[in-house]
């Protein structure tokens, strides 16, 4: 039951994008289409689970003082593995994500989880935490990219939804749209959370 709570925590209560507001760069940049958002989300899930597991296993043999460089090396290794894997098996996605794939290294979510969770908890709990946080991040990315793709390009997963006469709001798939849609989504999430909090009291 406790593991389920950790898992749910990552997706809803402590959602990295909507609640903790970390890891914004890649969120804004890759969400021009749903397939890019999903691919980026899954890449982060893979890195986060791997780094959480290894850091948790090594937590007793890592000296406190050099933990940050140790985290960096573990995270960078997993990012390189994911990068090479995508380059070999998913070339178009690799091209679309471009610079943001190596930049997963400096994504604050992964550091934050290593420092706040994996370094203090056992391997199984850390693995579940990585999965939950990663899926929470993916959920935010997919939501944001769904809104942007449907209204900005008139399609979903690249399949056109509306007829020829539909005029998409192109601004949504351009950089400004990312900021504005994310701002409004966080606002909506805030309202929903506040409603839930007051009904529980």
């Amino acid at each position: 039951m406790k593991l389920f709570k950790i898992f749910k925590n990552g997706i809803i209560n402590d959602n990295p994008i909507f609640v903790q507001l970390i890891g914004m760069c890649s969120t804004l940049a890759v969400t021009t289409s749903v397939s890019n958002g999903l691919a980026m989300g899954l890449a982060v899930v893979a890195v986060l689970m791997g780094s959480n597991l290894v850091i948790s296993l090594l937590r007793n043999s890592t000296p406190e003082k050099i933990r940050i460089p140790a985290f960096v090396i573990v995270i960078a290794t997993f990012v390189t593995i994911v990068e090479m894997f995508m380059k070999a098996y998913a070339q178009p996605i690799y091209q679309a994500l471009g610079i943001f794939l190596p930049l997963i290294v400096v994504n604050c979510i992964i550091f934050a989880r290593a420092e706040a969770f994996a370094f203090k908890n056992g391997p199984v709990a850390s693995l579940i935490d990585g999965l939950g946080m990663g899926l929470g991040y993916t959920l935010a990315l997919v939501t944001l990219s769904t809104v942007r793709e449907i209204f900005g390009a008139g399609s979903f997963f690249g399949i056109p939804l509306f007829g020829e006469s539909f005029q998409p709001a192109g601004i949504l798939v351009m950089p400004p749209g990312a900021f504005i849609v994310l701002g409004i989504l966080i606002g909506i999430f805030n309202v929903a959370r506040r409603k839930k909090a007051t009904s529980e009291i």
Binding site: A178, F179, I180, G183, I186, N190
Partner: peptide, 14 residues
């Protein structure tokens, strides 16, 4: 609901 980060993001969008 928009106080803090959301309004900062919308400002950045503009």
């Amino acid at each position: 609901a928009l106080k803090g980060f959301p309004i900062a993001l919308i400002t950045a969008g503009l």
